[in-house]
Amino acid sequence: MNFSNISDHLSRFCVGIGGAGGLGSNCAVSLARSGVGHLVITDFDIVSETNLNRQYFFGNQVGMVKVDALKYNLNGINPSIKVTVYNKRLVPSLIKEVYDSCDILVEAFDEASEKQMFIETALEAWPGRPLIVGSGIAGFGNNNELKQRDLGENLYVCGDETREVSEENPPMAPRVGIVANMQANLVVDLLMNMNRAQGKIGTGYEKK
């Protein structure tokens, strides 16, 4: 299968990403480059100077609404995909509304409490729909500790599951980028094994 066959297949699917920070922005960029047809992204934040050490934004975007800046960057990379963004803080009712038609969900929040809320809401609303969590990205080095774990019923986690961010263990571009791309890589893998015609997982985004 060549790249054009792969990206043709990916163009039929919708991926929802919760958060447009280090994990979310970098994961979205890889999925856009791969040709995933529709990305749904939510974040309430604005781009700040301190985001530039790991998130997919540029200096002249500081002060912009994060999801607007990200949508601009994603459209610049791949104009053929659809990007739907919401500049809102997620609560359970909004999660159920905006991500309902996504085939796969990527949890990409910074705060552990937001991760928990997103995951519990998604698992309850859509049991069996693939959900890829990021947990444990802090610091640098230790490549071999970063891994993917399958918890069953289509719940996966990427990261070291050990190191929380702190003053001594800040989030940095290399490790955040690796985990974001582990999430994107798993999305591609799962979508390549999903057949739109045979069995829809979401309520379904259909390519126009």
Partner: peptide, 25 residues
């Protein structure tokens, strides 16, 4: 769910999966 931690019971033979969530992203 977290509200159910005090009422949900684990019994002989159960398969418990736990995923730790740490800040950073």
């Amino acid at each position: 769910k977290k509200e159910q931690y005090s009422s949900s019971v684990i019994r002989e033979g159960d398969n418990v999966q736990m995923l730790y969530l740490m800040s950073g992203g």
